[in-house]
Write a protein that binds this DNA or RNA. Structure first.
Length: 469
RNA sequence: CGGGGAGUGGCGCAGCGGUAGCGCACCUGCUUUGGGAGCAGGAGGUCGGGGGUUCGAAUCCCCCCUCCCCGACCA
């Protein structure tokens, strides 16, 4: 039987599509660029969401909900913001069977509406910081959609905050970057990321600075997995977010906004997937352990059910696969495609020896373990998969990261996929433009030691250059 | 939005003027079950949509739509 997915090394985009189909993650929607997220894919998203949401709340922000429709006039209030988003707006011109007096825009992001309300709610420095987050769908009309990576409609979280000082705003943007985003991506998704700030060219429309989390995918391309922006006072001025300071003066607030989307599911697929399909870190797996009943006999069924209840009692997400009408081989392949981290196979042959077979999805290691110790072994294997995936991704990134002295060298180094590190001082914005001609972008700027720069014009910064999704 | 390719049962494809077929999946039965099971039977298609040419169109012509690949914009 041929493999259900195209080998990853043969055709990465095709492989990506195959995994999404075979693992039943998503389908294309009926309108170009739209996506149907299937139950298995949505369950993964729900787990990502839960992890992000918990951290956002720990960082002090509260959830709220703002409308999908935005008056077109709001968008135009901040010059760079409109300019940045105009090409991808979906605009509603008719409603209730009549042409609307003012067209409404389907939100591409909610800075404008949310800030118009923050302006209403903030009066005094005592009202600050104001920390608001919303979980929502947004629409950015896409000409070249890819499931999870670029769709015209996607799901995300967008945080919007207002602070008394530039420093407070900056610290909060960085706190979200590290304590919410980096933490979730590395500890939960098991995807190592590079933190840095974007160049002017790659900055969010309307921001004074954009911080980013950049991950490397299995083909060596970069994926922007999350961003946190310092908005300065741009939106505060546009929407009149003013407050009375401690000294009694009227001041404009300093703001941030930050978001991650269903793109993270795409990151997960591309960072960890292999020729057998998806590989899920246990923290996100809708099913952590699947107990496969090989043959339905009294003893095997009793043992399998016992394992299921013990794993459930140990708070593991577990499922019994007793579809014995379907061949064992098929069922194994299905769970591998779906990325379930640990599989316990219960059959009469092992059971006669008081054993079951434990399979780790990440390294496809198969070994027999004592029935009595199977739960403990499974829990240990889950921990090993969680950290193993991160270590593997980190090693892959290191193997594909090269130092370069100039643009040409970078192009050469990154041709087959990977990150090139080169001095930003030497490259500069003209160099960045030239790289764009070769399909390369500066993913982020960072200090040689990997820490985050204080200022854009700090000397000695390193540009991370790569092809990107 | 430019350049290239393709739309035929759920999926992958063949057929390229004479009235639609194959593989996989699906349904039923029996035999199977330790890595995508076997046999037998069965169901499923206004051939992307519209218009034209023709005695006759999946097949030829025109228009539209969608999808995939490559380039400019993006979470």
């Amino acid at each position: 039987m041929a493999s259900p997915v195209t080998p990853r090394s043969q055709d990465f985009p095709r492989w990506y599509q195959d995994v999404i189909t075979q693992a039943e993650l998503a389908d294309n929607g009926p309108v170009r660029g739209t996506m149907v997220i299937r139950p298995w894919g949505y369950a993964i998203w729900e787990r990502i969401q839960a992890e992000i949401d918990r951290r956002i709340k720990e960082a002090g922000a509260e959830n709220a909900y703002f409308p999908l429709f935005i008056p077109e006039s709001y968008l135009t209030r901040e010059a760079e913001h409109v300019e940045g988003f105009s090409p991808e707006l979906a605009v509603v011109t008719h409603g209730g069977g009549r042409q609307l007096d003012e067209p409404v825009v389907v939100r591409p992001t909610s800075e404008t509406v949310i800030n118009s309300f923050i302006a209403k709610w903030v009066h005094s420095y005592r009202d600050l910081p104001m920390l608001v987050n919303q979980w929502a769908n947004v629409v950015r009309w896409e000409l070249r959609p890819r499931l999870f990576l670029r769709t015209s409609e996607f799901l995300w979280q967008e945080g919007h905050t207002a602070h008394v000082s530039e420093e407070d705003a900056r610290l909060y943007a960085l706190r979200i970057l590290r304590e919410v985003y980096q933490s979730t991506m590395e500890d939960v998704l098991s995807v190592p990321i590079l933190l840095g700030h974007k160049t002017r060219r790659e900055r969010f429309a309307g921001a004074i600075r954009t911080w980013t989390c950049e991950g490397m995918m299995g083909d060596g391309k970069a994926l922007q997995m999350g961003t946190s922006h310092e908005l300065g006072q741009n939106f505060a001025r546009a929407f009149g977010i003013q407050f009375t300071s401690e000294a009694g003066t009227q001041e404009y607030a300093w703001q941030t906004s930050w978001g991650v989307s269903t793109r993270l599911v795409g990151a997960l697929i591309m960072a960890h997937g292999d020729d057998a399909g998806l590989r899920l870190p246990p923290a996100l797996a809708p099913v952590e352990v699947v107990v496969v009943l090989i043959r339905d006999e009294e003893a095997t069924r009793a043992a399998a059910q016992q394992l299921v209840s013990e794993l459930a009692a140990a708070s593991r997400r577990v499922r019994l696969d007793d579809r014995v009408a379907t061949s064992f081989g098929r069922r194994s392949v299905e769970w591998e495609l779906k990325g379930v981290p640990v599989r316990l196979e219960v059959g009469p042959r092992d059971l006669a020896e008081g054993q079951v077979t434990l399979v780790r999805r990440d390294i496809q290691e198969k070994r027999t373990v004592a029935l009595a110790g199977a739960v403990t072994e499974s829990v240990a294997a889950l921990a090993a998969v969680q950290s193993g995936l991160l270590a593997e991704a980190l090693q892959a990134r290191e193997e594909r990261t090269f130092s370069a002295s100039g643009g040409d060298e970078a192009v050469e180094a990154v041709e087959a996929g990977g990150f090139a590190l080169l001095p930003w001082d030497a490259l500069g914005e003209e160099g960045e433009t030239r790289l764009a001609g070769s399909g390369l972008t500066v993913r982020c700027l960072r200090r040689p030691d990997g820490t985050l720069a204080e200022a854009d014009d700090e000397s000695g910064l390193i540009a991370v250059v790569a092809k990107a999704y």
